[in-house]
Structure formats: structure tokens, C-alpha cells
Write a protein that binds this DNA or RNA. Structure first.
Length: 791
DNA sequence: TTGTCGCGGGG
DNA sequence: GTGTACGCGACAA
């Protein structure tokens, strides 16, 4: 019995160095521990008493004298927990399967229908965790105590295959990154079944010999493991990647998994006993969720972006890999080796947060790496806290129909503003929860707020420790990762309450609405307080405001105003000076361009960035907006005239005018619909002589006078430049120049983007033109975005 | 135009 | 035995 929030956050058992746990429902648990000092691995066989939470004991009464209160030597024992929660009977037995069977037998009798699985009793009647989680919750143990990330033994492997579909394609190469950092390449020695089977056996042998705690790759769960599993089964090879020799790949249900065989609606991921299977794609997604800076989530793009890619990194388009291998195998060996090296780096740079989470939450490391923070981290923490406190848990409860209201979004002005400042509240929602003590109504222990309080405080400490450690040191890295993990959990506390459809145990739409209501109130207050100090409000969204300041202000004045307004906010709510910009083009809500003091131009929102946009148009837009924000209207006109002229003289390459499209129809499907409606993309393929393509493939197409053409990025086909100049002239004006319409008066806009061939009666005085800023009438500026509840 | 749905990745 | 959100593109109405 403990009401100590530190135990809620970290568990209580001090056992160090746990790197993997495998538990069975018969009460056996195997724990692998890494001794930090020596690097030695220890396997310990432990026992635990499998347990369940029930809303009633009725279903076990049929056991008679075999059911008794805790402390008795009965086969099944129970204890009633305190408080009003529905899940109040903690029952346990030496064997979990027998316990579940006894409950099912009783429930079937009571309900007069056959209950086959505990889940059929519903969330409101039973809580049953995976055996490992039962073990961790009951023991108070967690992974990785007193262990640093770099003390883990991590191995990476990456398959090279002849295609993506394991029904037809084969593996011909596996690159392996060893825990030592060394790499090796395994290759099939021929093209047949036996060569591929041998390759799989050699991979398993390499893994067994290296005996890593963790296996990593990019899209490991989405590609490599399912592919390996399918090939091994097709070839009749027993695939053992775990630490228990007779146990092969197992499966677990996972929303973000691949379709399992049999029921294709079932999504699964693979797991193996004794090792944690980590997919760096999960870490990338989690990272980009808050950072929102990655160009894509593919390995190569992310590695380059994070500075992990070597300058001479070998690159080969996916569909050419096997083809290139046959001509130049060394090139593919270098390519695959670079893949595992980058994965190892990526896992280290981005995987630290999940590693840190595993020192807190009672779940396996690999589960914490792919779980969402609300149901995946906070819920297990709360379950452990309640059981530790001896308190009954509330059951999941469907919402009462109350709609969840969202954040505020105000657009105050459109057009061009100079001397722009962005101020925002750090971690607005958790701050409001703490400041106004807003937590789930049914959380009678106040555990969620206690966890948020602890996490915020510990995070400040972790940030300070990180700053104190030498840059680049393992110690600094550990503290930074801990800080990132804590931020993740803190920021999802609000989402946990707002989750609809009975998704989370303590979901509370009223509490969530109170948080957003306070947030809107806070944003309104900040805007008014700033406006009262003489700034021009531009846009405010959720937790931050862009505003322009008078020309005579210095940065000190800007910071002073932000500090003044910040001082008016409640304690724990901190307004931060986030940045200052030379100018801003405000186009629509969430669509704007910022010119940094350093001259860097940032475009945000759908109006300014689209993957379909033709490169020539994007280039024009960047140049024109750069000129515009510097007040150079002549420069905007020049950008337009240059673009028109380059089009007419066909100085843009075919690639410059092409746009990227995704093919959604197979060749057969298009042939079937072609008579009814012709589509540009497929016509481009056909006219280029391509009759075969794959659904989902992305190609670049462009318009010609008579039809369309294909830009083949791989083959470097001749740059034909036979594009339709008039069409792209219209595109330039209608799709790109129009993004500047808010920046100029209608007359000026007409003049700046006038057709160069239409002579005007007078010489336009571009020097006399100025960008405009239009304040929006106040009733129209206010919008509340409703995040509709999903059920 | 507006609403809905599905994707993001891997060879 | 699971569960992000968001921005974007494709498609249907």
C-alpha cells in the first residue's frame, strides 16, 4: 500500500539492468539483465502470481473452498480494493490460464451464453494485462534501471530483396550491424530456394552468436520481419531470432502492424522472447510529431536531415536494387551497409525517449517504442499507481455525449507586416492542468496530476543536468532523452483526458473542455494585453501569437512587452519570447510566410507548400515572396516576368514544370476505364511507352500541347521541354501568383501580374507601391476549431 | 466546391 | 488482443 507518487512514476523494485522480460501465463517469468560495469548478461528465472481485476467475485464462487481471501493457501485468492472504482476485486492464482478459465466458466453460467475470452466481458468488467505487464506491475520492476542506452547490446539488420512482395520476391542479401559497431554483409550464394534458405539460417546464426538485447531496423515491423517470416515459412526454415531456442517468431495485435495471415483485418507485429524488436520508423514518427521538421520519414531522408549520412553515401532507387546488384554487387553491399549504419545512428539519436520511458512505465521497451503515449504509457502508469495504492480502478466509461471543444484560432490581419514577434506559452495544456488543478473527475487519487507535477519538476532537473554535462557526452544524451520522454508524457496528459469513445480509463471530456476553455481564455487575454501595449495582432493559434511591433521598438522593447504580459498570467503558465522576424505574409489561418532576421524564408501551410506543386512555380513563389517581404515590388514583378520569359523560351527543364502524382489504378483498371475518361497521368505513362506500373507508384508528369509526358527521374531520359507553355503560364498566375493577392491592393496586384504582352497606357510605378496589411473586421476573426471526437 | 477516407514506409 | 495527430492527396457526391 503506497501513496508515494515517486513509486507511481518509477516503480519501486531496484533490480538493475533488466533488458528483456518474457513471461508466460503459467507464472514463469524470465528476466535478462545486463550488468553495466562488465557488459555481462544474466538470465534469471522468476515466478509471479498471475492476476486479474474484476468488477465482481460472482463468477468465481463456483470454485467453493478453492476461492479464498488473500493470505489463504487456496488455488484462487482475492482482495477487495478501496474506493468507488468498478474494478475492485484483485484475483490471482498460480496459473493465469486456469484463473481465466474459472472466470469464463462462471461468467458463461451467469450470462447464460458461452463466454470464450475475457475481453468478451468488456472493459467495464475485467482488466487483464499481458503476462509481462502483470509481472512488471506486480513486482514494481522496470526496464533499464541504472543502465545507460549505450550499455545495451544493439544489432541492426536490413534485408535486400528482389521486390517488396514476399510471395514473389526473394531475399538475396542481409546487412548486419553488430553491437560493436562492426558491419558485415551476408549474401545468398545462388538464386534458388536452397541459397535463400541458407541465407536465412546464416542470419539466425549471426544473431544468436551476437546475442543482442535489441534488434533494430527502419520499418523492421512493416517490412523486414514480415518478409523474413514469410520467406522462412515458404522455404520450411525454422526461424529463431530470440533467446529461447525452441520459440520462434510470435505475434501480437498491433494497430500499426501488418496484416496477419488468415484474417487480413487483423493487424499484427512480431515479437521474440528475450529481445526487443525496435523499429526506428516509430521513433521517427514520434519525433516528428512534435518537431514537424522532417522532409519525409524514410531512412535516407531522415539520416541526411539529422546529419547521420556520410557524404559518399551510396544511393540506389528501390526498384533497381536487385538489377544493380547483378551488375555491380559492391555498390549494393555499400548501400546496405550504409543502411544499417544509419539505422544504428538513428536509433541512438531518436530512440532515447522510448528507452527513458521504459525506466518508468510497466511495459516492455519495444511496446513503449511503438505505443501512443496516452493509452500506451499513461494508462499503465495509472493502473500500477492504483494497485500500489490498493485502490479500485474505475472502468472505461463511454462519454455522456458532451462534445469536446478545441483550441482558439484568430486571424486578425492579412497581408504583409514588418517587425514580427512570436510569443507562446510553453506546454500550455499541462500548465493549465497544474495551475487550475484540472484532472479527471474519477481519478480519486489525483494520480494523473501527481504524475504531471512530478514529470514537469523532474524534467526541469533533467534539462539542467543535460546542460551541465559535456556536449556530446553519453551523460548529456541520457538526460536529454529523459527530458524528451517526460515532455512526451506531460503533453499527452491532456490528450488522455480528451480521448473519446471510452478509449482511456480516466477519459473526462468535461475536464478536457475545461482545459481548452482556460486555454482560449488565456489566448484572448494575452491578445488583449499585447494589443493594449501598442502591438498589431496578426494571428493567434492555441498557445501562441504573432504580432507586429512599431518601427521604433528595439528587441529589448519586444522582450519587455512579452515579459510584462507573461507576468499577468497565472503561476506555472509561462509566456516565452519564441522568435522575431523581419516580416510576415499572412495569407489565411495557418498559412503564412516568415522572413527571418537572417534572411531565411519559411513558408507554412497548404497554400505555400504542396508536394504536387511544380518546381518552377515553387521557385517563383519563394523568390517573389522574398522580394515582397523586403518591400521590393519591382523585384516581385521581375520574378514574374522572368518566370514567364523562362517558360516561353523553354529555359525551365521538363522536370521544373512537372508535378508528382501517385498512381492509383493498375494498368488493367485504367484500360477498363480509359474509354470513358482519359486521365493525364496514365496517358503520360502510355505515351512514354510504359504499359506496366504498380499501384502506389509515384511518377512525375507534365502537360504538352497535345497530351502529357512522363519525366523519368531514374533513367535521365532526354529533357524534351515540349511542355505546354500557355498552360504553365496560366498555372503560374492562377496557382502561384495568387498566393500574393492579400499582399497588394487589387489595382497593384493587377499591374504587378499583368500579362507582359499587354502594353499598359502608363509606366507602372512599382517604386511607389507598398505591400498592404488589412485588419479583418473583428466579428469575422474568431474561430474555434472543434476536434471532433472519434469513436 | 465539400466531405470522407487512407496514407505516410520498406525492395 | 490494439488505440496519436496532422497534412496531404484521391475520390465521390
Amino acid at each position: 500500500m503506497s501513496l508515494n507518487p515517486d513509486e507511481w512514476l518509477w516503480g519501486w523494485d531496484p533490480t538493475p539492468g533488466i533488458v528483456s522480460v518474457w513471461a508466460e501465463s503459467d507464472g514463469r517469468a524470465i528476466v535478462w539483465r545486463r550488468i553495466g560495469a562488465t557488459g555481462a548478461l544474466i538470465r534469471e528465472d522468476d515466478r509471479f502470481r498471475p492476476w486479474l481485476l474484476l468488477d465482481r467475485l460472482d463468477d468465481l464462487r463456483h470454485l467453493g473452498t478453492e476461492l479464498a481471501p488473500e493470505g489463504a493457501a487456496s488455488r484462487v485468492t482475492w482482495r477487495e480494493l478501496d474506493g468507488p472504482g468498478a474494478l475492485r476485486f484483485l484475483v490471482s492464482a498460480a496459473d493465469g490460464k486456469a484463473l481465466a478459465a474459472a472466470v469464463l466458466q462462471g461468467a458463461s453460467r451467469r450470462l447464460d451464453r458461452e463466454i470464450r475470452h475475457l475481453r468478451d466481458l468488456g472493459d467495464e468488467a475485467v482488466l487483464s494485462l499481458a503476462p509481462e505487464e502483470q509481472y512488471l506491475v506486480a513486482s514494481g520492476r522496470t526496464y533499464f534501471r541504472d543502465l545507460a542506452f549505450d550499455q545495451l547490446h544493439r544489432l541492426q539488420f536490413d534485408l535486400e530483396t528482389t521486390g517488396l512482395d514476399p510471395e514473389r520476391a526473394r531475399m538475396f542479401m542481409v546487412a548486419v550491424g553488430h553491437p560493436s559497431g562492426a558491419t558485415e554483409v551476408l549474401e545468398a550464394t545462388g538464386r534458388g530456394d536452397e541459397a535463400e534458405a541458407d541465407l536465412i539460417r546464416r542470419l539466425a546464426a549471426v544473431v544468436a552468436a551476437a546475442d543482442p538485447d535489441v534488434i533494430e531496423n527502419h520499418n523492421l515491423h512493416g517490412f523486414d520481419l514480415p518478409f523474413l517470416d514469410r520467406r522462412a515459412r515458404k522455404l520450411g526454415v525454422r526461424l529463431v531470432l530470440g533467446r529461447i531456442p525452441h520459440l520462434g517468431l510470435r505475434q501480437r495485435a498491433a494497430r500499426r502492424g501488418v496484416a496477419g495471415d488468415g484474417d487480413s483485418r487483423r493487424r499484427i507485429r512480431f515479437l521474440v522472447p528475450g529481445r526487443e524488436l525496435i523499429d526506428t520508423l516509430d521513433a521517427v514518427r514520434q519525433y516528428d510529431f512534435s518537431a514537424r521538421e522532417l522532409p519525409g520519414h524514410g531512412l535516407k531522408a531522415v539520416a541526411r536531415h539529422l546529419g547521420l549520412a556520410k557524404a559518399d553515401r551510396e544511393l540506389v532507387p528501390g526498384h533497381l536494387i536487385y538489377q544493380v546488384y547483378r551488375d555491380d554487387p559492391d555498390r549494393i553491399r555499400r548501400y546496405a551497409t550504409a543502411d544499417v549504419e544509419e539505422v544504428a545512428g538513428l536509433a541512438r539519436v531518436l530512440g532515447g525517449a522510448a528507452f527513458a520511458l521504459a525506466t518508468m512505465a510497466p511495459r516492455r521497451y519495444e511496446r513503449l517504442a511503438d505505443a501512443g503515449p496516452a493509452t500506451g504509457v499513461i494508462d499503465p502508469l495509472l493502473v500500477r499507481a492504483y494497485l500500489r495504492a490498493g485502490a479500485a480502478l474505475p472502468a472505461h466509461q463511454p462519454g455522456d455525449g458532451t462534445v469536446h471543444s478545441g483550441a482558439a484560432l484568430h486571424l486578425f490581419a492579412t497581408g504583409v507586416a514588418h517587425r514580427v514577434v512570436k510569443a507562446d506559452v510553453a506546454s500550455l495544456y499541462p500548465s493549465l492542468m497544474r495551475a487550475y488543478r484540472i484532472g479527471p473527475a474519477r481519478d480519486r487519487l489525483g494520480a494523473l496530476l501527481a504524475l504531471v507535477d512530478r514529470l514537469v519538476e523532474r524534467r526541469l532537473a533533467a534539462k539542467a543536468s543535460a546542460r551541465a554535462a559535456p556536449p556530446g557526452s553519453a551523460e548529456r544524451y541520457t538526460h536529454e532523452a529523459m527530458s524528451a520522454a517526460m515532455k512526451l508524457v506531460v503533453n499527452s496528459a491532456y490528450g488522455y483526458m480528451a480521448a473519446g469513445g471510452g478509449l482511456t480509463r480516466f477519459a473526462d471530456v468535461h475536464a478536457a473542455n475545461e482545459v481548452t476553455r482556460r486555454g482560449r481564455e488565456m489566448l484572448d487575454f494575452m491578445c488583449r494585453a499585447l494589443a493594449a501595449r501598442g502591438v498589431t495582432l496578426l494571428e493567434a493559434d492555441t498557445d501562441g501569437v504573432y504580432f507586429a511591433v512599431p518601427d521604433i521598438w528595439t528587441e529589448t522593447d519586444e522582450r519587455r512587452v512579452v515579459a510584462e504580459v507573461g507576468a499577468l498570467l497565472p503561476p506555472l503558465v509561462q509566456l516565452e519570447f519564441e522568435g522575431r522576424y523581419a516580416a510576415m505574409l499572412s495569407h489565411e489561418p495557418k498559412n503564412y510566410a516568415l522572413l527571418g532576421i537572417d534572411g531565411k524564408l519559411v513558408l507554412r501551410g497548404v497554400a505555400f507548400r504542396s508536394s504536387r506543386a511544380e518546381p518552377f512555380g515553387e521557385a517563383f513563389l519563394r523568390r517573389a515572396i522574398g522580394r515582397l517581404l523586403r518591400g521590393d515590388i519591382q523585384g516581385v514583378r521581375d520574378a514574374y516576368l522572368d518566370a514567364v520569359s523562362m517558360l516561353r523560351r523553354r529555359e525551365y527543364s521538363t522536370h521544373d514544370v512537372s508535378s508528382r502524382v501517385r498512381l492509383t489504378k493498375s494498368p488493367a483498371a485504367y484500360q477498363a476505364s480509359r474509354a470513358i475518361r482519359r486521365e493525364l497521368s496514365y496517358e503520360a505513362l502510355l505515351s512514354a511507352g510504359r504499359t506496366r506500373w504498380r499501384v502506389g507508384e509515384k511518377v512525375r508528369i507534365y502537360r504538352t500541347r497535345t497530351g502529357s509526358g512522363l519525366v523519368d527521374e531514374q533513367d535521365q531520359a532526354p529533357d524534351r521541354r515540349d511542355y505546354d507553355v500557355d498552360h504553365y503560364g496560366r498555372v503560374l498566375r492562377a496557382n502561384f501568383a495568387v498566393r500574393l493577392i492579400r499582399a497588394l491592393s487589387p489595382d497593384d496586384f493587377g499591374v504587378v501580374f499583368a500579362d507582359p504582352d499587354q502594353p499598359s497606357l502608363f509606366t507602372p510605378a512599382f517604386d511607389a507601391m507598398h505591400p498592404v496589411l488589412n485588419a479583418l473586421p473583428s466579428p469575422g476573426v474568431y474561430r474555434t476549431i472543434d476536434h471532433a471526437q472519434r469513436g
